[in-house]
């Protein structure tokens, strides 16, 4: 799976992930508290400038931002029709600014750094016994490892349908896919325990 992280050595790349995440949370708070169109416009331009400074190029940037910008545009049009132009402008500017800032953090923070931050953030939860912090990193690794396998299995089930002249239906696809996949759980769990990866403390 290809991540949305982009290799690079810009200022944002060098900034610690925690600083970036805190700054993002802080700016989202600010963006929602302040309604002035002038401020929001400045924020959107600022977000655009930050994103542009990553040097992704127009094509690549557009490709990455298209889905979210489209959603924002749809909501803005809805607001324009059902509410007022002023409100539509506020929505458009505020959400665009946020989306650009968030996308910039995503593009400059590697998956490993993120997992470290998540593990750290889960420490307090560990103390109250909700989840083991190390489990999160392990599970994320497991998911990434098994997605291709699930896809291969899906393809095989689809082929089996075609071979028998059956039309693939949600039920006849999902049920065998789920049972075949989950049946591996015992073996995988045994393998993890055998290697002592989740050593009991």
């Amino acid at each position: 799976m290809k991540t949305l992280y982009v290799e690079g050595d810009t200022f944002l790349h060098r900034l610690s992930p925690r600083v970036k995440l805190v700054a993002l949370a802080f700016s989202s708070l600010l963006l929602f508290l302040i309604d002035s169109p002038l401020f929001l416009a400045a924020a959107a331009v600022c977000g655009g400038w930050i994103y542009a400074s990553l040097g992704l190029g127009w094509r690549q940037s557009l490709l990455r931002l298209r889905p979210i910008l489209l959603t924002i545009a749809i909501v803005a049009v809805f607001t324009l029709v059902l509410n007022s132009p002023g409100q539509a402008l506020t929505v458009l500017l505020r959400l665009t600014a946020l989306a650009l800032l968030a996308a910039a953090v995503t593009a400059t923070t590697s998956t490993g750094d993120f997992i470290d931050e998540i593990t750290l953030a889960a420490r307090p939860l560990e103390r109250i016994g909700l989840v083991r912090a190390a489990d999160l990193g392990l599970s994320i690794g497991l998911v990434v490892r098994f997605v291709p396998e699930v896809l291969t299995r899906y393809q095989a089930i689809r082929d089996a349908h075609h071979a028998r002249g059956l039309k693939p239906r949600p039920l006849t696809l999902a049920v065998p896919l789920i049972i075949l996949t989950l049946r591996n759980a015992d073996e995988i769990a045994a393998a993890i325990d055998a290697r002592g990866i989740r050593a009991q403390k």
């Binding site: 799976m1 290809k2 991540t3 949305l4 992280y5 993002l24 989202s28 931002l65 889905p67 979210i68 959603t71 924002i72 909501v75 929505v91 959400l95 946020l98 989306a99 650009l100 968030a102 996308a103 953090v105 995503t106 593009a107 923070t109 998956t111 993120f114 997992i115 998540i118 999160l136 599970s139 994320i140 998911v143 990434v144 997605v147």
Partner: peptide, 26 residues
């Protein structure tokens, strides 16, 4: 776990969406 994968920037949502921006989308 799926939401964490989205947050850490993997394009795991349908249509290849992902990243922190999806958490601030409408």
């Amino acid at each position: 776990l799926v939401l964490l994968l989205v947050a850490i920037g993997l394009p795991v949502l349908s249509g290849g969406r992902g990243g922190l921006a999806t958490f601030v989308s409408p």
